[in-house]
Amino acid sequence: MRYARFMTSFILLATLLSPLAKADQLADIKKKGEIVVGVLGTDEPNSFIDPATRKIVGYDVDLSEAIAKKLGVKLTLKQLSVAARIPELEQGRIDLLAASLTHNKEREAKIDFSLTTLVTGQRVMVRKDSGITAVSQLAGKKVLTVKGGTQEPNIRKAVPTADVVTFETSLQAFIGLQQGKGLGYVNDEVSLFNNYGKLGDAQKDYVILPQNLSIEPLALGIRKGELGLKKLVDDALRELEKSGEAEKLFFKWYGPNSKVKFDKRTFRIDSDKVDG
């Protein structure tokens, strides 16, 4: 009885307090003088730890920096695992997600998205000696990827019989491929090209299959209903696009001088709509 009463008052208290948590986030950020942005830090070149400075850098970080500047507040980065991204945002432990986040219809039920900041395909890297040249050949084979992203559902959709094994970081999945623990490694194209660039002399032993599993529009994640913050973030992104800064950032991280080596940019930061 005592316990039941305790629980009732606890629940009552929680209900009473929850509206406070829903105060305007933009105002909170300005008051704190700080915006906490969730990043992966394990997904070069979107966000990763620069071995020289030990700081988290990357495309996602530069975008966050620009938004913090627009807000006139200090940027604090918080490293998250792929699977923890959306829960951390929903529970308000971070203000914004800049974590190689795919914008899709299913996720729109949970969080809001900024304008699309990058469009990437999702592909599969295999070892050449596996003899695999098409995604369909992965049927019944072990395929490695990261836990909690869109990679796993996408490969399952493309090859329903594949034996998908997931890890906490994409780097672990990539090591698994190199050690021969799986035949394929699934990730966003930009990350795959980056991993491939790091292989050095071993590049001749690996190949990235040409077929796209999906096209992934990446965007920043915003807590549901925080319209003030969304407007400001979108405005900051639009300004970056207009000034040409967004294009510069793209080529800085994905251009011919990077490990990804894209020679053109096929999208613009101008829409927050995605196809079903």
Partner: peptide, 22 residues
């Protein structure tokens, strides 16, 4: 779960990321 073993926690995380039913 950390080394990709499909045990209970792993499957729970899989359901979470496929269905958003944490």
């Amino acid at each position: 779960t950390i080394i990709g073993v499909g045990e209970l926690m792993y499957q729970a995380a899989k359901v979470e990321s496929s269905a958003f039913r944490s």
